[in-house]
Computed example of a mutant assay.
Amino acid sequence: MTTHWNYPDPALQDELRKIANAIVAPGKGILAADESVSTMGKRLADIGLENTDENRRKYRQLLFTTCPTIGDNISGVILFHETLYQKADDGTPFPELLKQRGIIPGIKVDTGVVPLFGSQDECTTQGKTFPSLGKFNM
């Protein structure tokens, strides 16, 4: 079966290539910090803490601020929806805090499998995008 693609315009291709290259840079990796409220509750229970908004925020803040040079080894962080609206103690939103450290913030919001546009009998995972994250400026 032949699949026909409608490629994005060259400017968007360049932007996506730049982001992809930054994410897979040698010596770097992706931090999956997209634990749901229930999964985060299990992590907190393991250390004797209650599953509250504030404890989840503090846990994530610890991950993102552990070292000022965290961006030397982490290229991107997958965030949970709740994390988009959380802030560090100084009021800096977590996505901005990550960008300041040279880390690309991202989010995966899975809404199910759908047919892949422009293909024959192929599927992809459908998700939502959040323009509030803005573009990552390298």
Rank of each mutant, 00 (worst) to 15 (best):
I19A: 13
A20W: 08
A20L: 05
A20M: 08
A20K: 14
A20H: 15
N21Q: 14
A22W: 15
A22Y: 15
A22V: 03
A22S: 13
A22Q: 14
I23D: 03
I23T: 11
I23F: 05
V24A: 01
V24Y: 00
V24W: 01
V24E: 01
A25K: 13
P26A: 12
P26C: 04
G27W: 03
G27N: 10
I30R: 01
I30Q: 03
I30Y: 03
L31G: 06
A32W: 05
A32Q: 07
A33Y: 03
A33K: 01
A33D: 12
E35Q: 15
E35N: 10
S36N: 05
V37K: 12
V37A: 14
V37C: 05
S38I: 12
S38D: 14
T39V: 03
T39K: 11
M40I: 04
G41P: 12
G41M: 11
K42M: 10
K42T: 10
R43W: 09
R43A: 09
L44M: 07
A45S: 13
A45M: 02
D46W: 04
I47W: 00
G48P: 08
G48T: 13
L49M: 15
L49P: 09
N51I: 10
N51T: 07
T52S: 15
T52V: 09
D53V: 08
E54H: 10
E54S: 11
E54M: 06
N55Q: 06
R56A: 10
R57M: 05
R57W: 08
K58M: 13
K58V: 13
K58H: 10
K58A: 12
Y59L: 09
Y59W: 14
R60E: 02
